[in-house]
Structures are given as C-alpha cells and as structure tokens.
Simulated assay, not measured.
Amino acid sequence: MAETSKTALDESAPGPAARRLILKLLVASETETLDASDAIRACALFGISDNNARVALTRLANANLIETAGRGTYRLGSEGRALGEDISAWRSAEQRVRPWDGTWVAVLIAGLGRSDRTALRVRERALALVGMRQLEEGLYVRPDNLVGGVAHARERLYGLGVETSAPVFTVRDLDTGLESKARGLWNGKELVKGYRDSRRLLEKSNARLGTLPVELAAKEAYLLGDEAIRQLVFDPLLPEPLVTVADRVAFGSEVRRYDEAGRSIWQRFLAARG
C-alpha cells in the first residue's frame, strides 16, 4: 500500500481529522458513495469548516484514496479500497488467532538505521500494529499464536513498512529468565481492564443513543466507536495465560454491536438533509 494510505488515518486532533472522517464514512456507506454536501455536513458536526472539508476531498482524490462517481459524488479509489479492507479487518480479528504452543515470533532490527525519522516512525507503527515488544536491544517478539505463523508476520511487517533486510524468525526454548521477561512485556491485567471498561462505556452509550437528537447521537457514536475500533486495531491479540481471552472476545462483540448502531444513526443523519 502506498505511504499515503498508511498515514491517511494517523492525523491527531481533538476531533476526527476531515480526511479520516470522510474515508470512514465511505467505508461504511451502504451505497459505496458519498455526496460532497454530505461530507461537508458530517465535518461540520466536529467543527471542521466547509473549506477544510473541500480541501480534504481534493487531497484524498489526489492521493487516489477517493475518486469521482458523478457530479459532486465520490467513492473509494484504488488506494482507498485497500485501506478500507485494513480499516474493516478488526471485525475478524479473533478468526486470526490460533492456540499458542509457547513459540515466539521475533524480528531483529538492531542493524537498521535510526536517522531517517519517517522510516523510524513507520517501523515503530508497524511493530505496534503486529503487537511486537522489545525483548532485548533491537530484538522484538510476540507470541506465535496468529494464523499463518511467522510467514504471515513477516509479510505483514514488510507490508507495513519494516525494511525487508530485517530478519523475521521464530524463537523457542528461551531460558527461564528471558521467558519470564518475554511474558511480562505486556500488562495483561491492564489490557483486560481496558476491555471491560470500554465494553461498559459502549453499553452505556448504546442504551442512550436513541434518546439523543440524531446530530448528537451521530457525533457520540463516531467518537466512541472510533476509539473502540482503534483499541482493537492495536490490540496485540495475546493468548492465554497472558490475557483473559474471553474478555477480549466480549469486548469485540460489543464493538460490533455498537458499530452497527452507529452505522444506522449515520444513515439517518445523512438522509435528513435540511
């Protein structure tokens, strides 16, 4: 995927960046299209000006993330369709998990340069997305509990921007000290607490969305749903006994329910043109 696609959703702001919001609305669209006027209305909910919304549309089109589908209407472009698949991958996350036999996937980045800040940022994001943590200087690991094993991990790391000169391999039979250190790289209790807290937050919001004006409901559903999905996207998908898997599964199920409710609310909002 092109570098533009990798960074298109990375913008940080108090609310959603215009480009991120527009892309996600297109990914969720039942008709697979979005009118420019609806994009502008959606952006206005979050205090994004008409001009900034139009600039975002232009930049997304220039990056092949969206393309015109008629006068004033857009659909996902070639880069956007690929990115849309990445955005939606969280839905099937648990299907990518397999039983863990104690083996670790490792990547050695000690020989890679650190002077190129862009390359370093891409590398660090890739390692985070694959759920890897540093065991020793320049050596990152994760449990080998994902479908496809080391071959898939290697393909994903390289696809996300890690230099192909970085060896990706499996490690087993660590000594007692390193094994204990590896298992302690993630705070399993904190992860489980995050699953439970976020699940309760979504349940509480879902119960009250129907009582809110559609504009407020759409805004709340987007902000809370976006944060919950981000939590799943960056979740390392650890096995037992490092986390309580049942709590992660329950959280994922609640995110899917909340996402469906949010989609319905946004359809109502976009249909209610003034």
Rank of each mutant, 00 (worst) to 15 (best):
T4A: 15
A8C: 08
A8V: 06
P14Y: 04
P16A: 07
P16D: 05
R19N: 13
L21F: 05
L21G: 01
I22T: 06
L23C: 04
K24G: 02
K24Q: 13
V27S: 04
A28F: 06
A39Q: 02
A42R: 03
A44T: 11
G47Q: 03
S49I: 08
D50W: 11
N51Q: 15
A53V: 03
A53Q: 02
L57F: 00
R59C: 03
L60H: 00
N64T: 11
E67T: 12
G70T: 11
G72A: 08
L76R: 02
G77W: 05
E79V: 05
D86S: 14
A93D: 10
E94F: 12
E94W: 10
R96P: 07
W100A: 01
V105E: 03
A106S: 10
L108Q: 15
G111K: 09
S115I: 11
D116G: 05
T118P: 07
T118M: 15
R121G: 09
R123V: 02
R125L: 11
A126K: 00
A126Q: 01
L127F: 05
R133T: 04
G138M: 09
G138L: 10
G138H: 09
V141T: 00
N145R: 03
G148I: 11
A151W: 06
H152K: 13
A153C: 09
Y158K: 04
G159M: 06
L160V: 03
T164R: 15
S165A: 12
A166K: 02
T170G: 01
T170K: 07
V171L: 15
R172H: 09
D175A: 02
G177N: 14
S180D: 13
G184E: 10
L185E: 04
W186T: 00
N187Q: 14
E190S: 10
E190Y: 06
L191G: 00
K193P: 02
Y195N: 06
D197G: 05
R200C: 07
L201G: 06
K204D: 07
S205Q: 13
A207Y: 07
A207Q: 11
T211P: 00
P213E: 11
V214P: 08
A218H: 05
Y222E: 10
Y222P: 05
L223C: 13
L223I: 15
L224D: 04
L224R: 04
A228H: 03
L232E: 06
P236G: 06
L237Q: 07
L237R: 06
T244D: 14
A246Y: 12
D247K: 10
V249H: 09
A250P: 01
A250D: 09
F251T: 00
G252M: 10
S253A: 15
E254M: 14
E254Y: 07
V255M: 03
R256L: 12
D259N: 11
R263N: 11
S264P: 01
S264W: 08
Q267K: 15
R268V: 08
F269H: 05
A271Q: 12
R273G: 14
